[in-house]
Design a protein around this nucleic acid. Sequence first.
DNA 1: GACGACATGTAAAGAGTTACATGATTAT
DNA 2: ATAATCATGTAACTCTTTACATGTCGTC
Lengths: 198, 198
Amino acid sequence: MELTNTSFLLLGMVALGPMSGYDIKQRADGSTRHFWQISYGQIYPELKALEKAGMVQTAEAARGSRQRTLHQLTETGTEALSDWLSDSTVTPVELRDEMLLKLFFSDSVGKEEQIQLARNMARRHREAASGLATQAPPHLDKPCPMRMEVLQFGIGLHSWCADFYDNLADRLSSPPPLGSPQPSRGGGRRAGGGPQDV
Amino acid sequence: MELTNTSFLLLGMVALGPMSGYDIKQRADGSTRHFWQISYGQIYPELKALEKAGMVQTAEAARGSRQRTLHQLTETGTEALSDWLSDSTVTPVELRDEMLLKLFFSDSVGKEEQIQLARNMARRHREAASGLATQAPPHLDKPCPMRMEVLQFGIGLHSWCADFYDNLADRLSSPPPLGSPQPSRGGGRRAGGGPQDV
DNA sequence: GACGACATGTAAAGAGTTACATGATTAT
DNA sequence: ATAATCATGTAACTCTTTACATGTCGTC
């Protein structure tokens, strides 16, 4: 069986403890959603496939007459997850952002519209950051430093983006008089030599 | 006809000047690739659909007997693009990152492997940033401040990520003695009140 | 002559979302 | 009662990538 990244998300979640498909969705929405979304339409069929492939075991755990199927890793599943985690292949990060696409093509629209777009983008990222910040910290019974790091990453990333777009909107709102030095960007850009500063 | 974001990418590109499908692909790979990928499998069929819908006009511009079809915006197409640009709907940014998924689940692997993963991620982003920095600045005949802003955004974003992951690798390499203050993160995190600092 | 860039296209597969259907339990 | 949440599932659809096919032109 060909395991996809989504399979590994499921295996990884199930490794955290016995879980139902519903549990996995809740957990993923509360943690991996910002860099790996997942829907029921993938979860339930894929869990069945993983069971068939001997990667997870299921146990009925109905509450009253409300059905509930818990999943846990088998040895095969543990090994598959472990192999994946140890694999050091470098894969590219994928980003898709309709608003950024708009911004890219917005040289032809009025300045007011550009500013509004930038502000909306800033707000979007500000909200994403505070959404993550509010996120229930995963169980503290077991230490999970990496999960915390990834959470901090998300918060930091969205904050950086929000700062960038707010700064852009500021600069569009009050263009500096010709010949005067640009005020430095509030946020990032310490690193990584820009392109010959065109 | 239902226009998708990919349609608008095509319209936006064609608005920059008459272009062939091949040209669009080259341009997109050199500019929008980092937040909106596109493949020939979408470009050519979609260009035909846009022509059929009266959004673009085509002109044969063969060089010798090597065929070449140039596309330019019609009035309908210009209007559609303009409407899209003016639409201020807020849409979420989509991120997918297999390596980050690995990092998220890497509490169970050895520290050496965690460090290697973080370093690989840092390198990946460093390379993405310098790839963008090297990117041919779009024609300077016409001013294109927004396209430059988006380029700077990409460079800044990847630099911030690279800094984060290098810093993480550093912290994993030499954990600070208990009770001593954490050295501040080289990069971001000015903003956005973290989650009750667990 | 062979290779790399130019140029256009299609078919099939893959990944993922959306919308729907069903039913139980808990809180208001 | 009734709404929200718990819980599982499927079918259809959309979007995108991959792999292939075809042929030209410049240059090493």
